[in-house]
């Protein structure tokens, strides 16, 4: 189990940041993602795995009219 923005999410072996975004349906392009307070760069979303028990924060920047 991991925590994403305060909500619990089932963890799977080899789960990447990209998998987390898909599971949460997070589609906004301007995100700031930290795993256990460590920043992950967008270019690393596919390669970075999320450990079991991790606290993931996906900050969506404001946008709109």
């Amino acid at each position: 189990m991991i925590t994403v923005n305060g909500d619990r999410l089932d963890w799977t072996e080899g789960m990447t940041v990209r998998d987390v975004l898909k599971a949460k349906n997070y589609k906004f392009p301007m995100l700031v993602i930290k795993i256990d307070e460590v920043l992950v760069q967008p270019r690393d979303y596919d390669a970075t795995t999320v450990p079991d028990g991790a606290v993931v924060n996906v900050l969506h920047l404001l946008s709109g009219g």
Binding site: N5, L59, L62, S63
Partner: peptide, 10 residues
């Protein structure tokens, strides 16, 4: 416009 900060990012 605080929806993301509040509802999504918590």
């Amino acid at each position: 416009w605080l929806i993301f900060m509040d509802m999504v990012n918590k």
